[in-house]
Design a binder for these strands. Structure first.
Lengths: 362, 362
DNA sequence: TATTGGTTCTGAACCGTTACCGTCAGGCCA
DNA sequence: TGGCCTGACGGTAACGGTTCAGAACCAATA
């Protein structure tokens, strides 16, 4: 029944007539006492039901918790739905596992600003994954006196960082579409701030977005298309708070309703792109003949449908974050890791139809 | 830089000329001191870089860690690959989240019997998910003086439990196949013990399997088919250590090589069944006309391909486990939760072809 | 005036362990 | 015989908080 804690290291020591130190050593440093005594200690422990040194007390004394905290501002369960987040989690878990460290998922209620849970987590360090840069939980983590690694976040002074070059990555997509001939495009992006705005995005909101990744990708698109002679102010960008295929569908619908003339929809995630493809099919728009659609991430599902996208090594990101954090003691280590991305040419991108083709068929 | 811990509650108190109690109250019981003093405390804390009460020390004193431990004997990352395990994890995470509890994934190296990590986890309770009944980690968890909930495990005296009736569930499949007319069947199952046996399974090994779920499902099949006049000793059961579609493929191949005459392959998981379907296709066996294939779990992918299977509420299992654990203080609570399962008739099951049809076509 | 009650703060005990250093006995060597 | 070393164990002091029973003070009530 494990009712109440019956024995402590001290009571065990008293029972045996030895010091607490000796009992402690029996568990932690077998070489520090005679095998015979150790045997007696362990045997008595079993008899009294002593479960071994209390992990919390040990942590207090040794100043090691044996666990890494993970902060995701989304509902914890979000991480289990989104393939990219999942792969990141897996990579991080692998790194923790091989270092014998636990992985402590910090519970966060995105509505209430529940900073307390960050302060309550007994961990040796934090990994922060893709939270808005003005998130109070992030601030709470940074205020804790433990090493931290941020991922898909803006740089923070003195904090290790893992990520990709989002600007360069999305530029690969943009350049490809430009070279195919696309000039009239639309964009679907994930949420840009903690407030919900399921609609078009003003230039101002684009620039002041609090999600680093989204802000940077939009900036990359703006820069590249502007350089190609497109007036970015005319490009419609549709935002969705929830990250799901359904969001991609409705966002694509909103975009196509507003401007049926777009020849390409660029999405800042594969999930959104998959939704957009569903919406295209509903409208009898053939992809890529009638409409080009691109994604971002390179998730398995995207590969299956042949989505044109940018693949990023999400699992490696998780691994890298873990290694960076757990190797924090190493001197002169690299403080920032930027992973490579790769353009994946799929079957969802093609040159736009000419005006003639639009009317008379290909 | 968060270099070294500069301040403690005591040093803050000294700086302010108040007692430690007062500083503690400033954080935990704002009503216990004047607003003015509280403001001074918090301000001084900020000035000295005091990050608030140390979570580990607090845990030691309050005997609450604010986290739930999760033990999966598989590699931690396994949980992120297997859809069923994932859904369970999500459900558990949801329950933790709504209770404001962290979720601490205990790192376990399945090779080395690394019990230490179980003892090191500072948690208020454990959830144990689908580990072999002779697993030393399970024993280690049970030796800890904290509440525990086991899931998909055999009953343990005094320990809460969540699960389904595996025997009844697989019997639904068995009866369906029997009523369709299948008598010559084969079975694909997941690993039955900690040792690797990627081959046929003896009756003895079936009965002494250490994974409760697999053992029970096999027993259910044996009972039901025996009652239908099938000599169970003649039924080939193929085991695979790794749980993957590739395993399902190779296991199905092994089975079909040994007995090309089977009319149905019953799998104890959807993943294995999906692999079996791939192998069937490779052999130009039409499903279900030439071969019936069934799964177990009811994962999304199974629904997509129309697999005949038994759906179990995996996410709810996770939620239930969390609630049971976190509501442990409630008196007279239910100590065991058994969730319902449902037979899903898909398009992968049909009556067996007659001998005549086998030779002359349908 | 004495009592009551409420607010604000303090003192001391306690949570269970490990780090650090000291002690002591016995053996070895010169 | 004396000095030194080694193995085995003990004592003390943290580690950084929370809690509970009161003390001190002041205003209000009987």
């Amino acid at each position: 029944m494990h009712a109440r804690r019956p024995a402590t290291l001290a009571s065990l020591a008293a029972e045996l007539g030895v010091s607490r130190t000796t009992v402690s050593n029996a568990y932690n440093r077998p070489d520090q006492l005679s095998p015979e005594l150790r045997r007696r200690v362990l045997e008595t422990a079993k008899r009294l039901g002593y479960p071994g040194p209390d992990p919390v007390a040990r942590s207090l004394r040794t100043r090691k918790a044996g666990a890494v905290g993970l902060l995701l501002t989304e509902n914890l369960s979000y991480a289990f739905r989104d393939p990219a987040a999942l792969a990141f989690l897996e990579g991080l878990a692998l790194a923790c596992e091989s270092a014998g460290q636990g992985l402590h998922l910090v519970p966060v209620n995105p509505q209430r600003e529940d900073i307390a849970n960050v302060h309550r987590a007994g961990v040796d360090g934090f990994v922060v994954y893709s939270v808005p840069d003005d998130d109070p939980h992030l601030a709470a983590v940074l205020s804790r006196p433990v090493p931290t690694v941020v991922c898909d976040q803006p740089r923070v002074e003195g904090v290790d960082r893992v990520g990709i070059d989002d600007h360069a990555a999305i530029t690969k997509i943009a350049k490809r579409l430009i070279s195919l001939g696309h000039r009239r495009i639309g964009v679907l992006c994930m949420r840009l701030g903690r407030d919900r705005n399921d609609s078009f995005v003003s230039l101002d909101r684009q620039r002041s977005a609090h999600f680093h990744v989204q802000r940077t990708r939009l900036a990359g698109l703006a820069d590249t298309f502007t350089a190609a002679g497109v007036n970015w102010a005319d490009v419609r960008v549709v935002e969705r708070f929830d990250h799901s295929q359904a969001s991609g569908e409705s966002a694509a619908a909103q975009l196509l309703d507003a401007d049926p003339g777009v020849t390409a929809i660029i999405c800042t995630s594969d999930i959104l792109a998959l939704g957009a493809m569903t919406e295209a099919k509903r409208r009898n728009l053939r992809v890529p003949q009638d409409l080009t659609i691109t994604g971002f991430d390179g998730i398995t599902e995207a590969r299956r449908v042949g989505l044109t996208t940018v693949r990023q090594p999400v699992l490696e990101k998780g691994k890298a974050a873990g290694k960076l954090l757990l190797g924090a003691a190493e001197a002169n280590r690299q403080r920032e890791i930027t992973l490579e991305t790769e353009l994946v040419d799929g079957t969802t991108s093609a040159p736009p139809r000419t005006a003639e083709e639009r009317w008379f068929g290909p």
